[in-house]
Design a protein around this nucleic acid. Structure first.
Lengths: 146, 146
DNA sequence: CTTATATAGTTCGCATGCGAAATAAAATGC
DNA sequence: GCATTTTATTTCGCATGCGAACTATATAAG
């Protein structure tokens, strides 16, 4: 049950994530939009006007994470915050024209990234990978243990 | 060639990595040793006295990354830096007794992590996952593009 | 030997995202 | 109606790690 790979999965996962992150950052250097920021752009592309907390949940970010991301993207004029008319605590997020343009660019770039991510593997193999990655969300839950 | 999963691999990879990272951090809260720090401990467990740059290469970290990690671990008294006698620019890293103890603990914890990472998947499936993760290092290289 | 270049590390400013604690506005209890 | 609790978001301090620029030493070229 313990293959030689076991020992390195933690490391491989970490390296893979950093490599992808760095590559995307270098790729989108001119637009200034990072991978994390693209994530929020995609959310807003589907549901413009979501609550900050909803966006965080969709991106699997805790309150401090999404709050900081929103700050940076607001400063970069990619999104805009407006108070929720029905709830004085809540804020809704909206794409700016700049954000919309960045989203279009991100969508275009995603095709190549996905090609790089899946090339050389069969659909069945990619399914295994996707299933494994998804399963980690259950195996390593946010809240407590066991 | 474009399955429904394509669109989400970037996201799944990012979430999986963060979930694992966070889980390990919570687990080792008392010892104060994080996942990244454990990585360096493992390197030193195999090759005590490596150069900083060698350790960085083994962990796939650039110069600033490994430099900061070494700083924090030196401050935490997990490792010690000594000048290389043959090269005035270079430093070698050595485990402290504290570091050795932390390494032993990390080794013990790794078993459970690997069990969680592989449980429910066949050896062949884990091989696919490991091969895919490894392939990203070639597909998203550090230096240039294409 | 002296200059040019390569190499080992550090420093700086930044983005990311966590846990813990704080703030403020809802919702709930009585 | 008022006190309690829950919920939405922010703030703080931290670890991580990047790219760009810097320092210092070593090596190569002439």
């Amino acid at each position: 049950m313990n293959s030689r790979h076991d020992r390195r999965l933690v490391f491989l996962l970490s390296v893979a994530q950093r490599r992808l992150q760095r590559w995307v950052a270098a790729r989108t250097q001119d637009s200034g939009v990072t991978a994390a920021q693209s994530g929020l752009l995609f959310i807003l592309g589907q549901r413009d006007g979501v609550l900050i907390g909803e966006a965080g949940a969709a991106l699997d970010l805790g309150p401090p994470g999404i709050s900081g991301l929103v700050d940076r993207m607001t400063a970069a004029n990619l999104i805009r915050r407006r108070a929720d008319p029905d709830d004085g605590r809540a804020w809704r997020l909206w794409l700016t024209p700049t954000g919309r343009a960045a989203l279009a660019q991100a969508k275009a770039g995603l095709a190549e990234i996905n090609a790089r991510l899946t090339g050389g593997f069969t659909e069945a193999e990619i399914d295994v990978v996707a299933r494994w990655l998804t399963s980690l969300q259950t195996r390593f839950p946010r809240g407590e243990d066991q």
